[in-house]
Nucleic acid binder design. Sequence first.
DNA 1: ACTGAATATGAATATATGTGCATATATTGC
DNA 2: GCAATATATGCACATATATTCATATTCAGT
Lengths: 103, 103
Amino acid sequence: MDELPKLEELDEETLFIVSQTFKALSDPTRIRILHLLYQEELSVNNISEALHLRQSTVSHQLRFLKNLRLVKYRREGTSIYYSIDDEHVMDVLKQTIDHAQHH
Amino acid sequence: MDELPKLEELDEETLFIVSQTFKALSDPTRIRILHLLYQEELSVNNISEALHLRQSTVSHQLRFLKNLRLVKYRREGTSIYYSIDDEHVMDVLKQTIDHAQHH
DNA sequence: ACTGAATATGAATATATGTGCATATATTGC
DNA sequence: GCAATATATGCACATATATTCATATTCAGT
């Protein structure tokens, strides 16, 4: 009588963190931004132009991702360069993109 | 000059599937339902009672999960038993719960 | 201090989403 | 066919979310 590896109980805090993390990955715009940043560090303008999105749209979404510590930034002159800051979440995103494409 | 493993292009269809998949995992109620079902097959009423949720709430969320083929069901009398139908997505959920709890 | 360039922020709006109520549908036993 | 039980569905409503516009902030160069 084998059993599945038991999942730990889901406390409120874990539930919140997990749902927020997946919420970050549930919007097409944020997925595209993360997908881009996975390849290279980019400024807000770079992203805006590459994805044909308004500057404010990109800025708002980056704030969301920054609050969850999925991205980090570095200032260089008047530009701000963003890059990936959570390898685990990026792994999850890559896995799921791969899964969607090959199945 | 090493390069990162190149991600494939994100076509519209992939983007949609991926965002929908994460949307399924972005709601606390759905996470709790999947977490329960990971441990055992359960009827709508079982879930409703275990999580203190209205029957219609559970039914609505199960429809969502069923449409994405994350769960499957089997009828037994007037009851309908639901169980997990996507191991990959459950892996992703488990990984992320674990990550949230230990970091 | 002033200007131009890049980014961030707040308010407004349209749309999406989660839940509950009431009701419909489906199955079983009589 | 009828009653009882379990589940599904449609509608309404409150809340959350994504985007846009207008404006504020920050920094570099002069």
